[in-house]
Simulated assay, not measured.
Amino acid sequence: MDTPEPAGIQIDQQPGYAIRRLHQISVGIFLQEAGELGVTPVQYAALQVVGNQPGIDQRTLARSIALDTSTTGGVVDRLEARGWLERRLSPQDRRARQLFLTPAGEQGLADTVPAMLRAQEQILAPLTPRQRTEFMRLLLVLVTQNNDLSRAPAEVAGR
């Protein structure tokens, strides 16, 4: 197989470039929809996981949303400073901190969900319903099969 000359490579035909652009677009749409709430996509993910799993520890949260622990720490710090998350000592391990939504955090999450859903709809709007299903199926294959290659692999259920 011949390797193309660097000058012959079209950047907009490369999957990595297209994925990066889609991520930029996705974040832009999310912030357009949820910007007035002051929530980023990563903060939303943290709030949703803590809301779904009250008492989750910070390390498990990091694995759940595929972030490194120091980045997750910053996200938790900002949400705690905002009064949306609370850290509590774990009764089983005094070194671990469990995370819980505060009442303000529960309300913030509830307020963010409609904006998040609008953003998801807008991201997929150019696709037909059948294309959306196929896109999501293929996207999840790529994410799942390449998970271990990430600098911050997500914890995959059943593995």
Rank of each mutant, 00 (worst) to 15 (best):
Q48E: 05
T60R: 04
R59C: 11
Y44H: 10
G51N: 03
V42L: 13
A46E: 09
I56W: 00
A46D: 01
D57G: 00
A34V: 13
L61N: 02
Q48D: 09
G51K: 11
T69R: 10
S64K: 13
I56E: 04
T69Q: 09
G38W: 05
G35L: 14
L47P: 05
V39Y: 06
E36N: 13
V39M: 12
S64E: 12
A45C: 14
V50W: 04
R63C: 07
I56G: 08
R63F: 07
A46G: 08
G35R: 05
E36Q: 15
N52P: 12
N52M: 01
G55M: 12
A66Y: 07
S70K: 14
L67F: 09
D68P: 02
G55C: 01
S70I: 11
Q53T: 06
L47W: 09
Q58R: 14
A66P: 08
D68S: 06
G55V: 10
V39N: 03
A66G: 11
S70V: 15
R63T: 06
A62K: 04
A45S: 13
Q58C: 05
Q53N: 07
D57C: 01
Q58N: 12
P41C: 01
S64F: 11
G55Q: 10
S70M: 07
A62S: 11
V49R: 04
V39I: 15
S64I: 00
G51C: 09
T69A: 09
Q58H: 02
Q53G: 12
A45Q: 09
D68L: 10
R63S: 11
T69S: 11
V49C: 00
N52I: 06
D68C: 07
T69N: 12
Y44W: 04
V42E: 10
P54S: 13
G55W: 06
E36I: 13
G38T: 02
G51R: 12
R63V: 06
T60W: 03
G35I: 13
A62E: 08
G55L: 06
L47Q: 08
T69K: 09
L37A: 14
V50A: 00
V39P: 02
I56T: 13
T69V: 10
Q43M: 15
Q58F: 04
P41L: 00
T40A: 14
I65M: 02
G38L: 07
G55A: 00
L67C: 13
L67T: 12
Q53S: 01
L47I: 05
G51H: 08
A45R: 00
L47F: 10
E36S: 14
